[in-house]
Nucleic acid binder design. Structure first.
Length: 267
DNA sequence: AGCGTAGCCGAGACGAGCAT
DNA sequence: ATGCTCGTCTCGGCTACGCT
């Protein structure tokens, strides 16, 4: 989904092919990447998409905007994406983009692991808000890895994470792998918009404990990853941390309780 | 409430670079 | 020479915001 390799700032190259290889006035690679990003995150704002697509491009801000817009226009012309209104701020900046049903189907045709439940005409408001938040977290990880220069980052979306751990006991929003000089860190990532009841968050913690106990993850992961919940404020992060600690300790013991970490994007 | 200003967005025009 | 792709510049429309 998103990759930063050590010593470089470019994302992994992906071959453009199939239906997206028809002649167009924009790079088919960017069209392909946009389709994949929208499939992975569910929806993105234009500025987020621009950040993903043009990580290392030495373009002026105006050119980046135009290039991104052309890519979106290309996909819109083909009926693969739709404009959606992101909840919260009633302004032009709150516009987002998501796949249409045709876009979902095209992507599903080239990624066998893509969940069929994702194929729907329009995303829900809750999904859109959550998608934008998750993209912010991914961009923060990406920027931190680029700034460090010696950190390799691999960001996998939810269905990629499920495929990796071989269980649906808990479905993380994303799975992130960080590598620096032989040191490896992995984490399940959960995006929290401070709209979730603590009881619902507690249930989520229980599902992770259940996943931990089921042992299926051991085939793919030598050690249990962190479970990192990223929320909107430090105060809410502290509250969630208390809930996670209490629930995980009660249901799974001290060892698993230590794996739960909560933070905010401000940190 | 009405007005002016700043900033953002989408779109079109244009030119540079490249392949044929 | 021609056509194509891509980056830059610019303009009109729109919204947010501050001031009166």
């Amino acid at each position: 989904m998103l990759r930063v390799t050590q010593g470089s700032s470019s994302d992994s190259a992906e071959d453009a092919s199939g239906d997206l290889n028809t002649p167009s006035r924009v790079s088919s690679l960017r069209v392909e990447r946009t389709l994949r990003l929208l499939a992975g995150f569910g929806a993105l704002r234009r500025d987020q998409l621009e950040s993903f697509l043009l990580t290392d491009a030495t373009l002026t801000s105006g050119s980046r905007r135009v290039v991104t817009h052309r890519t979106l226009g290309e996909l819109r012309e083909r009926g693969l994406i739709q404009e959606v209104a992101l909840p919260g701020r009633p302004s032009r900046a709150s516009r987002g983009y998501a796949l249409t049903e045709a876009g979902h189907r095209l992507y599903a045709a080239r990624d066998a692991a893509y969940p069929r439940r994702r194929i729907r005409p329009a995303p829900s408001v809750v999904l859109l808000d959550h998608a934008a938040a998750l993209a912010e977290i991914a961009i923060a990880f990406r920027d931190a890895a680029l700034a460090a220069r010696d950190i390799a980052l691999l960001w996998e979306c939810d269905w990629e994470a499920v495929a990796r751990i071989g269980s649906t006991a808990a479905i993380p929003d994303a799975f992130v792998t960080l590598e620096r000089g032989g040191w490896l860190a992995r984490a399940f990532v959960e995006a929290d918009r401070s709209t979730e009841w603590y009881s619902a968050f507690g249930n989520k913690v229980r599902r992770y404990v259940e996943l931990y106990r089921a042992d299926e993850w051991r085939a793919a992961l030598a050690t249990w990853p962190l479970v990192l919940t990223v929320t909107t404020s430090d105060a809410h992060a502290r509250s969630l941390a208390r809930v996670a600690e209490r629930v995980a300790r009660a249901e799974g013991g001290t060892r698993i309780a230590r794996a739960f970490r909560c933070t905010s994007l401000d940190e």
